[in-house]
């Protein structure tokens, strides 16, 4: 949704038009907000206290993903090898 068209033959499929992508982002952000607001309308529940806080899952989900991406990126510097690494 965010990446610019960089392919050899940019076409005009409605799904890749910048206007569509803008609408998709707006819808997406609205959904994000709605899931947090919805928490106010359901019975509160917490197994460990903190998991019942408003927007906890949102922050937890976002930050754990960010952490995993960054750690994977760092691991990549150690673990990544060119594709032919195991070929003789």
């Amino acid at each position: 949704m965010t990446e610019k068209q960089s392919g050899p033959a940019p076409d005009n499929h409605w799904l890749v038009r910048p206007s569509t992508i803008r609408i998709l982002w707006i819808l997406f952000i609205a959904m994000l907000a709605a899931t947090v607001v919805a928490q106010l309308f359901v019975e509160p529940h917490a197994s460990f206290g903190i998991d019942g806080w408003l927007g906890f899952a949102a922050i937890f989900g976002f930050s754990s993903c960010a952490l995993m991406v960054v750690v994977a990126k760092l691991l990549g510097y150690i673990l990544k090898r060119p594709e032919g690494h195991y070929d003789d």
Partner: peptide, 16 residues
């Protein structure tokens, strides 16, 4: 509460 929890978790992972 489960629906809200997992929807938040997953959608914000998507944002990430």
């Amino acid at each position: 509460y489960k629906l809200v929890f997992y929807l938040q978790l997953l959608l914000f992972s998507g944002l990430a």
